[in-house]
């Protein structure tokens, strides 16, 4: 250090939360420790353990569970889960964007009513809504009866217990999680920016692609995260609407814990699954901070 300069003050000093901040954060920190950190650690420990004949956990160290995770059978399931979740996310984005954008642009009184409509499905239990889809999609369900009644000469469609049904179920369940964050950033979008784009010769399509989409990107990114992450691990919809014929990674983990009673292997799958997210998140974060 040069002579004569002032003694270095720790830069982060005034950024460090004081005791008041800690008091406010305490409930959440406690919650996270109890229900995220501790279970995560337990999972990590289990994943290196062996299983005895009756499904108990034996605390002897082994890599075997991880070796099994990379068996092609499970890799294929991982791949399929990623693909369905990605498809679901893409459909949610394409369907949800216009809805979110429209809601953000209508007068305020109407806006709140429309937002309420987006959230109405949450008033009913998620399982009941999924069962409702089953009655719609099944062989002699509402959809096929309707097609038959119209006498179009097509159908009946075999929709239930197919990958299509799974994606329908996933899109239906997660669509609001795409709409709300996009709405959030579209609502903040200054109308004069859109007008400026038109003014400078941008057709509606160009204005959308070069101004509106980039400026609502935070909403799209948040929506993607909120849809993709839970969709990849979803097991209830894939179980009920996929008829357990197309297992996803969520179903496999669930089965290892509840049916196969192989907790160590289930834990290893869970840990790999979690690492996958952490790595993706870190990469995305790095890229975002570099472009900013």
């Amino acid at each position: 250090m040069l002579a004569g300069t002032a003694p270095a003050v720790p830069v982060s000093d005034h950024n460090r939360p004081g005791w008041k901040a800690w008091a406010l954060l305490a409930p959440m920190v406690l919650w996270l420790i109890l229900f995220v950190v501790v279970p995560g650690l337990i999972l990590l420990v289990y994943s290196f353990c062996e299983r005895d004949e009756i499904g108990g956990v034996m605390f002897t160290f082994t890599w075997e569970n991880y070796a099994r995770v990379f068996d092609p059978v499970y890799l294929r399931i991982f791949g399929r889960s990623v693909w369905y979740a990605a498809l679901t996310t893409a459909i949610c984005a394409v369907v949800g964007y216009p809805v979110a954008y429209y809601i953000a642009r209508v007068p305020e009184t109407l806006r709140n009513k429309l937002l309420l409509l987006v959230m109405v499905p949450f008033w009913t239990s998620f399982l009941i809504r999924t069962f409702a889809w089953i009655t719609i999609l099944k062989q002699e369900g509402l959809l096929n009866s309707l097609v038959k009644a119209m006498g179009a000469g097509i159908g009946p469609f075999d929709l239930l217990y197919t990958p299509t049904a799974v994606v329908i179920g996933l899109v239906y369940a997660y669509l609001p999680f795409m709409i709300l964050p996009i709405y959030g950033s579209a609502e903040k979008l200054d109308n004069s920016l859109i007008e400026a784009a038109y003014d400078l010769g941008a057709s509606p399509v160009r204005a959308f692609s070069s101004v509106i989409v980039p400026l609502t990107m935070p909403g799209i990114a948040a929506g993607t995260l909120l849809v993709f992450v839970p969709a990849i691990g979803m097991f209830a919809i894939t179980d009920l609407m996929g008829g357990a014929k197309v297992p996803m990674i969520g179903n496999v983990i669930q089965n290892q814990f509840l049916l196969a009673r192989n907790w160590p292997f289930g834990a290893a799958l869970g840990v790999v699954f979690m690492l996958m997210f952490v790595v993706t998140y870190v990469i995305l974060q790095r890229r975002a901070s570099r472009s900013a």
Partner: peptide, 17 residues
């Protein structure tokens, strides 16, 4: 507006952030 040879300086400037 995008087919008019007229450009505007906006009150809020409306620069693309």
């Amino acid at each position: 507006p995008y087919r008019r040879s007229v450009n505007q300086v906006f009150q809020s400037y409306a620069l693309f952030p």
